[in-house]
Amino acid sequence: MRITSAEVAALLLSIKVSLFSLVIMLPPGLLVGWLLAKHEFRGKSILNTLVMLPLVLPPVVSGYLLLILLSNNGPIGRLLSEIFNIEIIFTPFAVVIAISVISFPLLVRGILTGISSVPTELENAARTLGASPLKVFFTITLPLAHRGIIGGIILGFSKSLGEFGATIMVAGNIQGKTQTIALAIFNAVHLGQDITAFRLVLISTILAFISIWITERITISNNHI
């Protein structure tokens, strides 16, 4: 009962796109989390609603909206294909976009909780000690918010690994190209390949287990805060 190359490909693709999505979404996630946690500005509630929307929308709906935007007839898709000659739909990049949109609210939630927990008095104290707002962010806010931020990262990453609805809408289910582990499980069950399905479910469970374990390790390691 050996793991097949298709299964390995699905697993690797899931990990790759999830990591890639995390890397590109973390900076905007930190920015949005910081803005929502520490600032008052016009349109704050609109920004909050927009960011959190994918959390409440059915993923299939988010996926459908993305499909309309990104297809060759859609406003963004047309621009990309005419100017750069790039097609996104049904490529691994479409997977990245789909899982990024779906996991972003979870990432921001964690960051927002973490940054909100940092007392403004400490940030003010750092300002009076000569630190610019940017230095305060990197030397005080970020380190003290690390629990929430790591929580958001793990939650977002796990969501990315298992995303199904939006991915299948914009990226399809192409084996070896856009078939992530969630899609592969769906495929296997659909085709009655119970053993394959069971193996993939087991791998997913182990991945989830590891991510929770890492979170715990990281949060416990610094006990001064």
Binding site: P119, E121, L122, N124, A125, R127, T128, G130, I140
Partner: peptide, 16 residues
């Protein structure tokens, strides 16, 4: 505040 260079000792200390 970061350009004023006024040392500020807070009631609760506010140590990092």
């Amino acid at each position: 505040p970061d350009k004023r260079r006024f040392g500020y000792v807070f009631q609760e200390g506010n140590l990092f």
